[in-house]
Structure formats: structure tokens, C-alpha cells
Design a binder for these strands. Structure first.
Lengths: 233, 233
DNA sequence: CAGTGGTCTAGACCACGGT
DNA sequence: CCGTGGTCTAGACCACTGG
């Protein structure tokens, strides 16, 4: 610590973490106040503050005014999955990406969709089916519904060239979404497109996207057999 | 903004976000420097800095010394899943949680496990099978391997009362992990424990945990049929 | 080399929430 | 009430990197 350079908030973080891992501060322990720690580490309170703040953002500490900072008892771990566009995912595995638009229909929203996305009944939506290939092997089947009201330009877009996901990401870059993963059995259509046997277990990702309380799109991606979604934390 | 209170980094974040969403700063735009923004917003540079730093942590901005801050072109979205212990997950759905230890064996690590966890060959490991129930309905089947070297106390632990996950979380609270989700077909054993038909698609989560470069545990959780793992972002 | 973000400091005031 | 974290400020120096 006293090696000539000033103590950085990184140093503080690391030392606090060490004390937790080494049971110097077991779970539940109340840490010294920021002022005391600042004195001990020979740095400004703001430096300690940033260190502790980041640790609490990582769910390692609990901070409350007046009662102080304590080591979390049961840290809820968070797995962070990077949801990138399919093209990038394929290309990052050094494979050749290919995309095909299978179907495109502009229709009034079916009832289940209106209910799910809180659309006015008879709202026009765009229904798309797409395939994504990795080295010409089926990689992902995409079944997507788009609320035309929120992205009218989609009707004119050339979706033969660029996938709807990429198009939407350019158009509506920052939106709210709910995502879910599940397992399902391949039905006839999925088996056809993904070259599977009917009933084969497939990994699915379903995502609903909202922009300022209005639904933009609902998509279900079905992956090729054996696909794994991986993350570190 | 000029309502008497000082401008907070929250205000800055929100305003910057608004300008991005309203296409005042389209994707790729280089933002004014922190100093200019601080002047514009009437606050200190540190305030702007914190706002922009947090936005870049959210993958909305790209920041580089010298070249400045720009709006990310293709923001990689991150889905953050809270991985809590099963008991909590069940209890949060207002159901009654029950846990059962099915099998417990202390054996030398099989070769595939040694390879996967980088264990010395013949390292002793603990192999556990557990069931978790929600309202007495099968909820999750847990198949776990524990490296005894890293957590010797596990041998003495009473795993009839508390699940190994909870026990480990208390003992080794802060560790590195790799997690992956996938779909599989239920084999005979899974079908038995989870009351499924053989071949039914099931959702699986596999997790490897490391503490300071040493493997702690490898676990595969298989969920009841129809399970969905959900998150917002 | 010079411009931009990255960080530290010392001091100040505020806001929440136990006692 | 009053202790603790939450935040802002003004100024300073540093570190990286593009030209």
C-alpha cells in the first residue's frame, strides 16, 4: 500500500474483498465507517465511498444510512448474459453467417398477441419468420411479431438483406425488455427448419421489447440442438 | 433543471439518455467533452463524469481517452438473471419448499470430472443427488460434485437439513463461476425424480464454481417441465 | 505532444433512518 | 436528534492515445 503511489479505490476494493474472503470480516459484520476506513487506508472519504459503493452494486455489501455498511449474508448472485445479435454470435465462432427471410405477413394482431402486448384490438402487426445459419447449418429459427404503430418504417425496410433484429436495434436502440429462457419440444415446423426430429428438446429464448410503455416486438428464438447459453460471474 | 436544487448526476444521465433516444445524438455521435457538458448543465465535471461513466457501464456510451465519448453503435444488451437459492425461489412464489437428500457418496473423481475441473487424478470428491419440491411437487433435481480439498468441512456437514447450495453459499460466499443454460431430454432417472415421461424436454442449468483457481463444485440443476428463467433489462 | 477521460482530494451540505 | 452514507464542488495531477 505505501509504495509511493496514492491509494486508489481499486486498492480499497481489493483489500475489503480480501478481508471478507479471509473471514476477517465474516458475513454480517458491520464495517468501520467511511471516515475510519479513509484514515486507515490513508485516502479521502470519496475514495472509500466509491470502493464500497461498487462492492454494494456487486451485492457483496449492504449499505444503509445511519446503520452503516455490512457484509451481505446471502449474496444473490447475478449471471449476466450478453445478448448480442445472432450474426455477431455466429461470426465470433469463426463461422460463416447466413440469413434468410422465410415469411412476412402484415395482419391484424391475433387476440393472444393483443392481450400479451396490450395492443388495441385489430392493431396491424408484422409477422416474420426467419432462419439464421452458421456455415450453412441451421443455427436459429426466429418467429417475430412487430407492432407497426411503434416502428412504421419497418414496413418499407428491406428485410431480405438485414435481419429484423439488427434493423430494430438500429432503429430503436435503447428500450426495455423482458427475456426468458426455456426448453421445449420441437414441433413439426421447428423440426423442419432446424433439421431435427419431432419432439427433440430445443432451447428457446423469448423476448418482449417495450419503448415508453408501448410494445415494440415479441420474438421467440429457437436454437439448434445442443445449444448452450453461457456466462461468467 | 434550474429549480433551485443542484443538478445531480441522475439529471445528467437522464438528459443524455433523452438526447440519445430523441436522436439529437444519434448512434455514433461524439458527445461534447466533460468540461463542456459540465458548463452546459451547470455542474462540476465530476458530476458529468459519474453520469457518463455509469452510462458507459450500461453499454450505452463508449469512452476513450483523447478521442472522447460517443454513442455506441450496436449496444450489446445484457440480461441479468438473479441466481438465488432454490429455497428462496420457491418461497417467493408463496409455495412450501421441501428438500430431500437423495444420495451422498465420497469417491475418487472420475476422469471426466478431473479433466473438467482440473483436479489431480484420484482427488476425492463428494457426489450428491438432491431433490427440491414446491408444494410437494418436484421442482428441481440437483446433481452435484464437490471438491473436498477446497471445502473439507462439507464432509461433516449435515446435508439432510440444509441443501448443499445454501451450505456452500454460507461457507464460500464469494467465488467465480461459469454458468450455462441448455435444453435436454429427460433420461430415465430424471423422468423418475421429476415425474416426467422419458424424453420430455427439460431446462437445465449447469454451474462451475472456482475459488482462487481451484474448483469448488460442479452442479447440474434440472427443472420441472415448463420452467422458465426470466429477467428484465 | 496535446487533448480527453480517469481519478484523488478536502471540504461541504444533505437525506435517511435508528435511538 | 444526530450518525452514517449520498452526493456535489473546485481544483489538481495522471494516463492513455490519436495525430
Amino acid at each position: 500500500m505505501g509504495d509511493g503511489t496514492r491509494t486508489s479505490f481499486h486498492d480499497v476494493k481489493q483489500e475489503v474483498l480480501r478481508r471478507i474472503q479471509d473471514r476477517i470480516w465474516p458475513q454480517g459484520t458491520v464495517l468501520p465507517t467511511e471516515i475510519k476506513l479513509a484514515k486507515e487506508f490513508g485516502c479521502a472519504r470519496a475514495t472509500v465511498n466509491r470502493a464500497l459503493r461498487e462492492l454494494s452494486e456487486q451485492d457483496i455489501l449492504d449499505r444503509k444510512r445511519k446503520s452503516g455498511t455490512r457484509v451481505k449474508i446471502m449474496p444473490a448472485k447475478h449471471a449476466k448474459f450478453e445478448i448480442s445479435i445472432v450474426r455477431r454470435e455466429v461470426e465470433e465462432s469463426n463461422a460463416v453467417y447466413r440469413y434468410a427471410l422465410v415469411a412476412k405477413n402484415q395482419i391484424p394482431a391475433p387476440d393472444w398477441l393483443s392481450a400479451r402486448l396490450k395492443l388495441p384490438s385489430e392493431q396491424m402487426v408484422l409477422h416474420l419468420l426467419c432462419m439464421h445459419y452458421s456455415n450453412n447449418i441451421p443455427f436459429q429459427f426466429e418467429d417475430r411479431w412487430i407492432n407497426i404503430e411503434t416502428v412504421p418504417d419497418i414496413v418499407e425496410a428491406n428485410l431480405e438483406a438485414i435481419g429484423p433484429n439488427e434493423w430494430l436495434l438500429q432503429e430503436i436502440p435503447f428500450s426495455e425488455a423482458e427475456i426468458s429462457f426455456s426448453a421445449a419440444a420441437a414441433d413439426h415446423k421447428l423440426a423442419d427448419f432446424l433439421s431435427l426430429t419431432i419432439g427433440a428438446p430445443v432451447f428457446q429464448m423469448e423476448r418482449t421489447t417495450w419503448l415508453r410503455d408501448k410494445a415494440v416486438t415479441l420474438v421467440r428464438m429457437t436454437y439448434h440442438q445442443g445449444y448452450k447459453m453461457t456466462a461468467r460471474y
